[in-house]
Design a protein around this nucleic acid. Structure first.
Lengths: 184, 184
DNA sequence: GTCTATACGAGGATAGAC
DNA sequence: GTCTATCCTCGTATAGAC
């Protein structure tokens, strides 16, 4: 699964070649087909793997780390997705590909919409901790804008249209704007 | 070019088959290769085509239409990309696909980055007309956020994670937030 | 479980006639 | 400019030995 994540990060969901995956994993293509039903099976299991991994690294904090304020937690959670680490790049790339594929492949839409809903609610919850007096509608709207912006910035970053540092600045400013707006 | 836009909107950049494009245009595959150097050439010219077309439909106004205020022009320009018409859906789909495929294919990055820069500057200009006292840096930042958000919302819309009407509301609210922020 | 070898189909690209 | 016919590479998937 780790090899699959690497290859998808390198070639994309639709650019994944079973032969290349086999080489990356150090096995033969036949063995891949022994373990997975077909190409789609590989994709499906890899995406599950990637989702579990994302859940882990956005939740995890060092045991001796100082407790975060609500505002810090909000910023960390969003800015964690704009980082130059292997795991994050692989996950962001795969997520972007999943999203883009769903435009043409209906089978992925359901899962994606559900995952998006969960994510938006998580961010709305964090926003609510920062601005407890806000209405649920306002929180949901802000969360939808922030997560959609993150997807947009992420794709621009990965496609070479936007330096990572600048993407982070823009994201931080957007968080600031939304929090300010909720507070007014 | 119109046929190419249709096929890309239907299959995606990486799902585009020269054979299908030829059929869509009512010609042979050989004729496609006579007019375009190769598959990449098709893609590159299609990107140019959809940009020109977008430029046209976001700029064009009916001759007898009342003149727009700067704020109205800004809103129209951005919200026009979130509409259920054939041209807009094709353009948004193709743009999203070109953006997504640039993550894995370097050949289009340059063109895409340039087109993005032009678009951001156009929006920054409109924002400047609404808030003339703003600094160039603040205007550029707001324009980058608004255009990146539009890309994010657009992809969510096209992938079935977000109803069009809701996407429009979120976009309008974001414009409102950015304009307010520049004015403060 | 894991390999080598290969069948098979799809699709990009070209040759050459008209 | 436009076509038909075709080459050839690449990628999925399977057969069968160990």
């Amino acid at each position: 699964m780790e090899a699959a994540a690497r290859v998808i990060a390198r070639r994309g969901v639709r650019g994944l070649r079973v032969e290349e995956l086999a080489a990356e994993a150090g096995v033969s293509t036949a063995l891949i087909y022994y373990h997975f039903k077909d190409r789609t099976g590989i994709l499906r299991q890899t995406l599950e793997f990637i989702n579990d991994r994302a859940e882990r690294y956005t939740t995890e904090r060092a045991a001796d780390a100082p407790p975060l304020t609500a505002r810090e937690e909000l910023e960390q959670t969003l800015l964690l997705e704009l980082q130059e680490t292997v795991e994050v790049r692989e996950n962001s790339t795969a997520w972007g590909e999943l999203r883009a594929s769903a435009v043409f492949d209906e089978t992925l839409r359901e899962d994606l919409a559900r995952a998006t809903r969960v994510w938006v609610q998580e961010i709305a919850g964090l926003l609510g901790a920062v601005r407890p007096m806000s209405s649920a509608v306002a929180l949901a709207g802000a969360a939808e804008r922030l997560t959609a912006l993150l997807e947009g910035l992420s794709t621009r970053w990965l496609s070479g249209s936007l330096p990572l540092a600048h993407a982070r600045t823009l994201m931080a400013d957007a968080i600031d704007a939304e929090v300010t707006r909720l507070g007014s």
